[in-house]
């Protein structure tokens, strides 16, 4: 593991602390082979890696759906292995990749209320929590419609709202933007960023490096059940060989910066604005 470099975010407390986590599925597939990772309160962490790298297994352990045979998982100061999935749901919310795997109610509002109801909150509190979650995911206009008849971007918002309605401190989003167009992605991620600015810790599981470049504070690259790299975003994108080893490709602007590195452009550029600025500076120097 490469030690982390500079951090964009301040680091208040540890929200999740994982030590020497191993997991093997029935049938012998070793999904995790010793993962050490801290997730800090209030950060937006991206976990990236090719298919089968262990991202989803890791997420399922954080919210108790899978029980690790060895290693320790501490979530918000409590030992996760001694808590049930329902207990952990109050702390770690997990929005699944396919929203259709959780939608079943006849209205959006009912769907969002399902989680807090399961956790045993009184009905007035359930209504308040669901209302907040629907506001956060901008569902007010469609609260009375049947979720399953809505389009994918709406269904995904509903599935995320139904998880944040339980007011978890950590929100795990598994491939939240798959199948969404550019505008829908931007809309969704703006809502997610807002949740993050309000203090919620976000764990973003994704293949989309542009999403990572634009929104994440820190990147963890997983490969073959291990953490290959844990760094800030620009640091992660400067090591092209390592990314490709984990079946990942940095965003086009970073690739362009790599191509121009002989001309004095740094390799760790992650946004078009930054590249434009660098090019202008270079021109100024030459003149």
């Amino acid at each position: 593991m490469i030690p982390s470099t500079a951090q964009v975010m301040p680091r208040p407390g540890k929200m999740v602390s994982v030590r020497d986590l191993k997991f093997t599925y029935e049938g012998g597939v070793e999904a995790l082979r010793g993962v050490n990772l801290d997730i800090h309160e209030g950060e937006m962490l991206a976990i990236v890696g090719g298919n089968g790298s262990g991202k989803t297994t890791f997420a399922k352990i954080l919210n108790g759906l899978l029980r690790p045979p060895s290693g320790s998982v501490v979530v918000d100061g409590k030992n996760a292995s001694s808590m049930t999935v329902a207990e952990l749901a109050k702390t770690v919310g997990y929005a699944f990749q396919n929203p259709d795997h959780q939608l079943f109610s006849s209205t959006v509002e009912d769907e969002v209320r399902f989680g807090p109801r399961n956790l045993g909150y009184p009905e007035a509190e359930v209504a308040r929590m669901a209302g907040q979650a629907m506001d956060a995911m901008r569902l007010g206009a469609i609260r009375g419609l049947p979720p399953l008849s809505l389009r994918l971007s709406d269904r995904r918002r509903i599935s995320i709202a139904s998880v944040i309605a339980m007011d978890p401190k950590v929100l795990i989003l598994d491939e939240p933007t798959t199948g969404l167009d550019a505008a829908e992605t931007k809309n969704l991620m703006e809502s997610v960023s807002m949740l993050n600015r309000e203090g919620r810790t976000i764990v973003l599981i994704t293949h989309d490096m542009r999403l990572v470049a634009e929104y994440a504070h820190r990147v963890v690259v997983m490969s073959n059940g291990r953490v290959l790299l844990d760094s800030d975003v620009s640091g992660a994108f400067s090591d092209l060989a390592l990314l490709r080893q984990s079946s990942l490709e940095p965003p086009p602007v970073t690739l362009l910066a790599h191509g121009l590195s002989d001309h004095g452009i740094p390799k760790d550029i992650i946004s078009p604005q930054e590249l434009a600025l660098r090019l202008l500076m270079l021109r100024g120097e030459r003149q």
Binding site: L65, Q102, F114, G115, V163
Partner: peptide, 16 residues
């Protein structure tokens, strides 16, 4: 596999 995933998704929403 689908049923398993759906069950997991609902358990993650506090369903017991």
């Amino acid at each position: 596999v689908t049923v398993e995933s759906i069950t997991d998704a609902q358990r993650a929403r506090g369903l017991e």
